[in-house]
Design a protein around this nucleic acid. Structure first.
Lengths: 109, 109
DNA sequence: TTCCCATATTGCAATATTACGATATTCAAA
DNA sequence: TTTGAATATCGTAATATTGCAATATGGGAA
């Protein structure tokens, strides 16, 4: 149906999957990598860095912002973007827990 | 268009985003959590754990398997599933790098 | 004010994803 | 060999996502 069922899942499961979903596109990974590649926040040359048209980049930035993964502050003419590590932390913790639990499991499979 | 452009991105960006995309659904998060909640691999009661029909669960398991996030071995009548930590590790490392780089950045925004 | 630049929004076409009924497959037990 | 339980695949409908041209918006500068 294209619509994900959310009713039967916990809110943690729904929130976690929404976060991962946002990282599930190469352009959004590229945006994060670019934001990390410079030792400051980026004011307005993200569009030039990506192989996508300006409206498409704007859309991806919006999704990252909505998810709380990046934040943007208006800086004169343009907008200054940087990563907000809190949500990244949440995802990282989830994955680390999986790794830890797995390493404590009896071997199988 | 519904189709993600992959040409302009690095293979690392494409591979990383494919991994995250697979975790971008509550059912697949729930499957992983369930696999971790028991101290062994799970042989055939995943369908009962999820609020989805059997073909749908089978489809989600397939995507997790294709991504290498879980592995399943045939065990008599059913199939025994467990998490493969390698790909989880890859995602975790990506996120940790972002956190580390961010903490080393000059404050901005 | 008017112009210009950067970014956002709208609208739409193409494709992807999700869900599930129906059906196929696979294998162990009878 | 047939039966039955577990899982996979097919087919399809509903919805979501992606990408971009066109257009709007929001400031600064002239």
């Amino acid at each position: 149906m294209g619509i994900s069922k959310t009713e039967g899942f916990t809110s943690e499961q729904n929130e976690m999957s929404s976060l991962f979903k946002v990282l599930g596109h190469p352009a959004r990974i590229a945006i994060i990598q670019y934001l990390m590649s410079v030792d400051a926040c980026i004011c307005g040359d993200i569009v030039e860095e990506l192989p996508l048209a300006q409206p498409t980049v704007s859309q991806h930035l919006k999704e990252l912002k909505n998810a709380g993964i990046i934040q943007g502050t208006i800086e004169g003419k343009g907008i200054c973007y940087c990563v907000n590590p809190q949500k990244i932390q949440l995802m990282s913790q989830f994955l680390e827990q999986v790794i830890i639990k797995k390493s404590n499991q009896k071997t199988c499979c």
